[in-house]
């Protein structure tokens, strides 16, 4: 078992873990400079807390644990500082997808995909990243906390300072918008639907 003495040097940390931490932060924040800042804060906090590193989990797991807290703290702070937009003003794709009677216009496309297999396609990853980065911030924050971090509605409502009813509307809009974006930019090509 490693001990705190066996942690790699802070400079090595950046070489060894910088990319992974940055990817993780960017997937949640979608903002390169905010992601870089939070990665730097994570390393600085890790440096301070070095003595507490037990060595029971790998260094990477320890660093990602710190990073997760930093990201949620940042999102919480931003949600409190910014006046919350009225939920009804947030964009919704529902009018594009449904006719006035509430029926699907063309309907979602069939995705017969294997998640791990489709993620091997670099072009798909680029489309997915673009669709995620096009989500309005309020939708994106709720979406990553729910879908990537698997936080409960209750926890997310506390972080974002919104009611559960509003959270469920926000998540619905985020999912529908992302699916619509992927349908348009990836699955509209029939050859790509069966991977």
């Amino acid at each position: 078992m490693s001990t705190s003495q066996q942690l790699s040097s802070p400079e090595q940390w950046v070489d060894e873990h910088g990319d992974a931490l940055y990817r993780f932060a960017l997937s949640r924040l979608q903002n390169p400079s905010a992601a870089e800042d939070v990665v730097q804060e994570t390393f600085l906090a890790a440096l301070k807390a070095r003595k507490q590193f037990s060595g029971r989990s790998p260094e990477r797991t320890w660093l990602i644990g710190i990073l997760k807290h930093k990201i949620v703290d940042l999102v919480r702070k931003e949600s409190r500082e910014r006046p919350a937009e009225e939920i009804d003003d947030l964009p919704s794709d529902a009018d594009l997808l449904f006719d006035p009677a509430g029926r699907w216009r063309t309907g979602p496309l069939e995705w017969q995909v294997h998640p791990e297999k489709i993620l091997e396609r670099k072009e798909f990853r680029a489309v997915l990243q673009r669709c995620l980065s096009n989500l309005p911030k309020r939708l994106r924050d709720a979406f990553f906390l729910r879908e990537m971090e698997d936080q409960s509605s209750e926890e997310i409502c506390k972080v974002l300072a919104i009611t559960p009813t509003n959270l469920w509307v926000v998540l619905y809009r985020a999912r529908t918008r992302l699916q619509n974006c992927l349908n348009k930019n990836w699955f509209s090509d029939p050859d790509r639907r069966g991977e």
Binding site: D19, A20, R23, L47, R60, R125
Partner: peptide
């Protein structure tokens, strides 16, 4: 790497990496 596979093409820029190393060296 423990990061989402959807983001596996992303890298920390050289500039950011140097900046962070410098901040760590100063703090250390």
């Amino acid at each position: 790497s423990m990061a989402p596979t959807a983001f596996s093409d992303i890298h920390l820029s050289k500039g950011a990496s140097e900046r962070i190393k410098k901040a760590l060296t100063t703090a250390n």
